[in-house]
């Protein structure tokens, strides 16, 4: 079985698994990193949203063999370590707005929100209603109103 190596939440991990196993299963089933959630497995629900090299990606739709040794994967578990302090400002905003209901979609929502803020920063603009409307992460508990409020707060502090 091929050996796979990549960087996960700041640490290099190596394990044996077939190339075509999707990263989501490598994280959840083999490494026990369960922050990224399964919600569809076909890149439509966005519950598994994590970061690769600082950008949002959906590990259910990436073969582990396609990751390079130096690729840095960050899951919700590693998000706070990318900043000083206990929590990332987006996580804090989520607490302040008390966004989560069942909480299942929220790791993905937060990772998507952080990537969205970084993206609009790269484009030298701030978040618009159209950006918020364009977020594809589904929340079956319907927490959208507070998600929108939290993103605006989190963006101000990022």
């Amino acid at each position: 079985m091929p050996r796979q190596t990549f960087v996960l939440n700041g640490k290099t991990v190596t394990l044996n698994v077939h190339d075509d196993v999707r990263v989501l299963w490598v994280l959840r089933d083999l490494l026990g990193v369960t922050g990224p959630k399964y919600g569809c497995g076909i890149n439509v629900c966005k519950a598994c949203t994590s970061h690769v090299n600082g950008r949002a990606f959906n590990p259910c739709s990436v073969r582990v063999g396609d990751l390079k040794k130096t690729d840095e994967v960050t899951t919700i578990e590693g998000l706070a370590d990318t900043v000083a302090g206990d929590l990332h400002p987006m996580q804090q905003a989520w607490l302040d707005r008390d966004v989560a209901q069942c909480g299942y979609c929220q790791p993905g929502q937060i990772m998507a929100a952080v990537a969205l803020v970084r993206k609009v920063r790269r484009e030298r603009r701030s978040i618009t209603d159209a950006d918020l409307d364009g977020i594809r992460n589904i929340c079956r508990c319907g927490t959208y109103t507070r998600i929108r409020e939290a993103i605006e707060q989190g963006a101000r502090r990022m």
Partner: peptide
């Protein structure tokens, strides 16, 4: 359970 939810620590059956 808000903090567990936003840090990925909240555990559901498959976790």
């Amino acid at each position: 359970d808000a903090r567990d939810a936003v840090t990925g620590r909240k555990k559901y059956a498959t976790d």
